[in-house]
Design a protein around this nucleic acid. Structure first.
Length: 194
DNA sequence: AAACGGATGGGCT
DNA sequence: GCCCATCCGTTTG
């Protein structure tokens, strides 16, 4: 996806990432999935890691749009975000669920579970299945072995309708909990929670 | 089918 | 020292 895509306002990027493809070519093998659920984190949003200014942890959020921001959550899982909006703003989109498409056996092996619905349904799960670790933190998603593609470049076919998009409140937060900043494809069975 | 608590470690007050 | 943008196994209705 072009740099201008990620440079749009964060809510637009969060909505337009629905139906996009995330591909990781790792030494163990290739895994890929289609994004079906996202959340926007905005500056002036108390749930956003960057809302109180720049720190060593959130520094990638202030970098170029289209870079990865990966952080440790609850001491045991990682969450994967796409930096959005113009450089220096400090906003990002959390990827919350994928429809697994390629490398399902490798995903299941990394997850320690069977191939099924909980491979990539939830931010910690998809980070584990796709091997999205702090190694990716600060890396460009337009170069290298971890990339994002639109429908047309991934499939080589003309875009189809994704069906209705549901807008709801975000999951697992206390501050800013009433803001309508979570988006998912209503027709996808791979969404983490309805 | 939903509700609960434990695991686990870095960041920030 | 407390707070998490979570997941999983176990218990309860």
């Amino acid at each position: 996806m072009p740099r201008e895509f990620f440079e749009q306002d964060t809510v637009t990027v969060a909505r337009k990432l629905l139906g996009a493809y995330l591909v990781h070519d790792s030494p163990e093998g290739k895994t890929a999935g289609r994004i079906v659920e996202t959340e926007a984190y905005l500056r002036n949003d108390p749930a956003c890691h960057a809302s109180k200014g720049r720190t060593p942890r959130n520094a990638p959020m202030f970098g170029k749009p289209g870079t990865a921001y990966v952080y440790l959550i609850y001491g045991m899982y990682h969450c994967f975000n796409v930096v959005s909006a113009p450089e220096g703003i400090g906003e990002a989109v959390l990827i919350r669920a994928l429809e697994p498409l390629e490398g399902l056996d490798l995903m299941a092996e990394r997850r320690g579970c069977a191939v099924g619905r909980n491979l990539c349904g939830g931010p910690g799960r998809l980070a584990q299945a796709m091997d999205l670790t702090p190694v990716c933190n600060g890396e460009s998603l337009r170069r290298g072995d971890l990339r994002l593609y639109g429908f047309e470049s991934f499939t080589g076919r003309e875009a189809l309708s994704l069906g209705p998009v549901v807008t709801t409140t975000r999951i697992g937060i206390t501050r800013g909990a009433d803001l309508p900043l979570r988006f998912y494809l209503a027709d996808s069975p791979f969404v983490s929670r309805r």
